[in-house]
Amino acid sequence: MLFTDDTAGALASAVALVNSAEEPDTLTGLDQLDAFFAEHGYTGSRSRDAEELAQVRALRAPLRTLLTSDRDTAVEIVNRMLAEHRALPRLVRHDALDYHLHAVEDDRPFAERIAVETAMAMVDLIRADEMGRLSLCASDSCEGLVLDLSRNRSRRYCSTTCGNRLAVAAYRARKG
């Protein structure tokens, strides 16, 4: 395993959140936010209101900047995010999860918890000098982000949809 489960999970959720802004926007309602919360295994309090949705949606652009930055810029952003939210890492164990890091209290706003968990995950990526695990989708018509945690670093597309679209186009070009 290259990274711990909580690091991989936080990176995957940050990429999913950033990619939710691609057309069509897949984070427009509270039901979609609920699904995001459940899918990515978040815990802690939720207000489940329009303000929370707006705060999480507002994170997409800053997280995109962080996840597409060079290593030195990412360090500056991570340090600023951790200081801004007064992150204080601690080991916790809950539900079916073994010890992992939480850096803000569970009653902090959901958007703040996402930001801090992403920053903490980026600490691991930066320290391991693995920023190349994050890239833009290889499709010319897509601006989605790709998180490649594979051993052979072979992931090129943000989703199977993008990969399939290009495979079909290549097939048609060969047959055409």
Rank of each mutant, 00 (worst) to 15 (best):
R71E: 15
D129C: 04
R86Q: 13
A119K: 05
L125Y: 06
R80Y: 09
Q55I: 04
R90I: 04
R133A: 14
T118M: 03
L82F: 15
H85G: 06
R71G: 04
M120Y: 05
D70Q: 14
A111Y: 01
L125G: 03
A115P: 07
L63I: 10
Q55A: 15
D72A: 07
L88D: 06
E105C: 04
L97N: 05
N79F: 12
D95T: 13
H94D: 15
L88G: 07
S135K: 10
E76C: 09
H100Q: 02
V78T: 02
L97I: 14
A119S: 09
A96N: 13
A87K: 09
V56R: 00
R64K: 15
F110C: 09
R93H: 02
H102A: 15
T118N: 06
E76D: 15
A54Q: 12
R127A: 15
A74S: 12
V75G: 00
A128T: 13
I114N: 05
T73M: 11
S135V: 07
L53S: 07
A119L: 06
R90Q: 12
M120K: 01
L125A: 09
L53F: 01
I77H: 06
I77C: 00
E105S: 13
V116L: 05
I126K: 00
E117A: 01
L63F: 09
M120D: 00
E84T: 12
A74W: 10
Q55H: 08
V116Q: 08
R86F: 11
E112K: 04
D95S: 14
A121P: 02
R127M: 11
V123Y: 11
S135M: 09
A128P: 08
L53W: 05
A115N: 05
D95C: 06
D107E: 05
T73C: 06
T68I: 06
A83E: 13
L67V: 13
M120W: 07
A121C: 08
L59Q: 08
L101I: 14
H102D: 12
A103K: 02
I77Y: 01
L88V: 14
I126R: 00
L125T: 00
R108V: 12
L91D: 06
S135W: 02
G132S: 12
T65Q: 10
V116G: 04
V123Q: 02
P62F: 06
L59S: 07
Q55N: 08
